[in-house]
Design a protein around this nucleic acid. Structure first.
Lengths: 117, 117
DNA sequence: GCGCTTTATTCCTTGACAGGAATATAATCG
DNA sequence: CGATTATATTCCTGTCAAGGAATAAAGCGC
């Protein structure tokens, strides 16, 4: 189960936006400030929360600090989600069987092999 | 991308506990109260938040209200997670490749130690 | 209807968190 | 060292959410 700090870190929309930005590529703080439209102090505070949640790492590049996503907590979230995903797959399967109305059916197999556990 | 209410609903540890309880089986409010050790009003308020986030449904059974998980928002979370999971898989894969380098090459070339100052 | 049980809601207080402004720290360069 | 850039931290304030106590509402049995 993920740490509480992980959930509360991701509960904030601005922080999720930062995380989405860092998914594209690592970025220095200035870029994040500009992209999010937040003030620099506020951004730094959000980055601190993300750091303490283990979601991002910092690399120093001259005076700049380049933030990058750390994939580990994502795995934690994924592990937390796993039992619920089973429930979801079950219900999807049942719904699909009952309604049979999916025209662009995505081949709902009983086992979902997309994640290499 | 999941709705903000979904994230804030799951940000609370008590609500995650309730969700975990409901993963096992649907339960009436009284059971949740006892299992979580919260007061009845507090539990009802948490259930309301979960309801508004779409995470649970209610079924009426005499005077009791039986709450059950709704799997749909889980799918939303999973969809949100997907791009990050790719990142995570990539990093796992990179690590695996590094560890899986065919070690039968006894004269493995080390990193060039000269270019660094 | 009346009581009884179960759950929801309101009122209130408290604590946590976000944001802005100003300031401090760190690193680079001359 | 002093100036400059880039980022972090502190202080303050407003907002929002959680928890408890009391109360309301809804459904059931008589």
């Amino acid at each position: 189960m993920p740490d509480a700090t992980l959930w509360s870190a991701l509960a904030d929309p601005h922080r999720r936006a930062i995380v989405a930005l860092l998914l594209q590529r690592p970025r220095p703080v200035g870029e994040i400030v500009e992209a999010c439209g937040l003030s620099q102090p506020s951004t730094s505070k959000h980055l601190k929360v993300l750091r303490e949640a283990g979601l991002v790492r910092v690399r120093q590049d001259a005076q700049r600090r380049v933030y990058a996503l750390d994939p580990a907590p994502i795995a934690e979230l994924d592990a937390w989600l796993a039992p619920y995903r089973e429930l979801w797959n079950r219900s999807l399967d049942a719904l699909g069987r009952r309604l049979d109305e999916t025209p662009d059916d995505t081949s709902h197999a009983p086992e979902e092999p997309t994640t290499k556990d």
